[in-house]
């Protein structure tokens, strides 16, 4: 079992500017993580890959989460080694949402290439020195970043109306609205 405190100390000893600290989960059922300073992410990734004490040979996924005042980017690292298997989540917080920037780690982990593209596509985090910095799931000329909480779908795309009224299933919408009311009523009842 990986001890996150030891690992955070190890990261700090390798990369002093990382200021790694453990974000302990409030509830026992949830996962804890290590948070590092955004500017140090490339150095941290390098030190995680090339060391003998905590070798992490696989970057599994990069998952961005949009919060009201910052964007949190989660890197899930793992060691695919039968005798020494462990994994952990590395977090970094990008404060400036209008100009969110991080250093790309795709030179260290090739897996980051597409994962960072998806993070950019969905949350608008720009990755410096990325070899192929384009959108991946949405069209290249799509506006906005869908997984931001304040995202509003554009009205017109290339002269085509997005979500035209004639093609919307209004029955479903009314059904969803009713469901929401029922859920609210149930929540109230369960509180009592």
């Amino acid at each position: 079992m990986l001890n996150l405190n030891d690992l955070a100390q190890f990261i700090n000893s390798k990369v002093p500017s990382a200021a790694a600290k453990v974000n302990a989960a409030a509830e026992a059922v949830c996962d804890s993580a290590i948070e590092v300073a955004p500017a140090s992410i490339l150095d941290v990734a390098k030190s995680l890959k090339d060391n003998s004490k905590y070798p992490f040979n696989v970057l599994q996924v990069i998952s961005g989460v949009d919060y009201p005042d910052h964007i949190e980017v989660n890197y899930m690292f793992a060691n695919f080694d039968l005798n020494n298997a462990y994994e952990f989540t590395l977090k970094t917080k990008v404060k400036n949402k209008n100009d969110a920037k991080l250093e790309s780690i795709s030179s260290v982990y090739k897996a980051a290439d597409w994962q960072e593209r998806e993070c950019y596509d969905m949350l608008g985090v720009t990755f410096n020195n990325h070899p192929d910095h384009r959108r991946i799931l949405c069209p290249d000329d799509w506006e906005g970043f869908p997984l931001r909480k304040d995202y509003v779908v554009q009205k017109v795309y290339r002269g085509m109306e997005v979500n035209p009224d004639a093609k919307m299933n209004w029955g479903d919408r009314e059904f969803a609205k009713r469901q929401e009311e029922i859920t609210k009523a149930q929540t109230k009842a369960s509180k009592k």
Binding site: A25, A26, E27, S63, N74, M76, Q186
Partner: peptide, 28 residues
């Protein structure tokens, strides 16, 4: 399970072995 499912504040990353490979669910 209660009628309205409310999870505690936090996050998990759960992996399972699917036919095509590992599926990871990061739930916040």
């Amino acid at each position: 399970v209660s009628k309205v499912i409310k999870l505690p504040k936090g996050e998990v990353f759960v992996r399972t072995e699917c036919p095509r490979g590992e599926l990871g669910i990061h739930l916040v």
